[in-house]
């Protein structure tokens, strides 16, 4: 198949002298579902923030389809085809589900403020297409019956699904999911995996950060393990989970003793 959609090389980021990410390097194959795991404090979230432009890396390269993302704002990176969800689930609480998805910029690129204000023909076309796409995604995540409800009434798990739909709205090349099933009702986790699989079938690649081993093992073809800000191991999930270095990093002193 094709090469990597995302390539991270020698990524470094320190906060007040503490190295959160220390030379991390890994890649995500186009169209794949890749897991990014590691113990708490291993630098996963900081790495995601650097990749998506919310933090500026001290050193290293992030390439999306071979193009360097260094110095770009999060919105520029999103428009290039890399979107993300947030660990602390974020939706527009005051908007209904459809409005939540219509905020996304991509379908309206090129319309301009004048067109939006005067509801030009171009705007109306974009709006029809965007609404169709939004309804499709809401159906994909199974929230169709709530489409006109304000997001504030959704449960925690439903908000995560809405956030997922928001990240998918621009038909991106790669979506980074930051803990998609943490705090989600265990009986629903398989549903989430199925939704990701179906979205992946459309060609979008996923980089998933998650602590839930079952979820990662069942979904990912490739897993990258971070420890203390650097890559510790990578490979197919079952292989990674048997790697003694990984066990030690997760279980710490106990495993050694």
């Amino acid at each position: 198949m094709s090469g990597p959609v995302l390539e991270v090389r020698g990524l470094r980021k320190s906060f007040a002298g503490v190295r959160a990410v220390d030379g991390a390097a890994f890649s995500v194959r186009a169209g794949s579902i890749t897991g990014l795991i590691g113990p708490n404090g291993s630098g996963k979230s900081t790495a995601v923030d650097c990749i998506s432009g919310f933090q500026r890396a001290d050193a290293g390269q992030v390439l999306l389809d071979g193009a360097d993302l260094r110095g770009l704002t999060p919105q520029r990176i999103a428009r290039r085809g890399l979107t993300r969800t947030f660990q602390d689930v974020r939706v527009y609480e005051g908007y209904d589900l459809l409005q939540n998805l219509l905020v996304v910029a991509q379908p309206f690129v090129g319309v301009g403020w004048g067109g939006e204000l005067l509801r030009s023909a171009g705007y109306r076309r974009a709006r029809v297409a965007a609404e169709a796409r939004a309804r499709e995604l809401i159906e994909l995540v199974g929230l169709t019956r709530l489409v006109e409800a304000p997001a504030a009434v959704l449960s925690y798990g439903q908000k995560k699904l809405l956030a997922f739909a928001g990240a998918m709205m621009s038909a991106p090349r790669l979506v980074v999911l930051d803990e998609p099933v943490a705090g989600v009702n265990p009986t629903r986790i398989n549903e989430v995996a199925e939704i990701v699989r179906r979205a992946n079938a459309g060609g979008t690649a996923f980089l998933i950060i998650e602590h839930n081993v079952e979820f990662i093992t069942g979904l990912c073809e490739h897993v990258v393990v971070l420890d203390r800000g650097a890559k510790l191991a990578e490979g197919p999930p079952h292989q990674v989970h048997q790697d003694p270095r990984v066990l030690e990093a997760y279980l710490g002193v106990e495993a050694v003793a």
């Binding site: 998506s52 919310f54 704002t73 999060p74 919105q75 999103a78 428009r79 979107t83 993300r84 947030f86 974020r90 939706v91 527009y92 609480e93 005051g94 908007y95 409005q99 219509l102 905020v103 996304v104 910029a105 991509q106 309206f108 403020w113 939006e116 204000l117 705007y123 709006r127 956030a163 928001g166 990240a167 709205m169 621009s170």
Partner: peptide
């Protein structure tokens, strides 16, 4: 749509940025 986006930014600026 300008009003929609403005209030989205007010509600959650990083989320809006992540959406382009």
């Amino acid at each position: 749509r300008i009003g929609l986006v403005l209030k989205a930014i007010k509600q959650n600026e990083p989320l809006a940025q992540s959406q382009g």
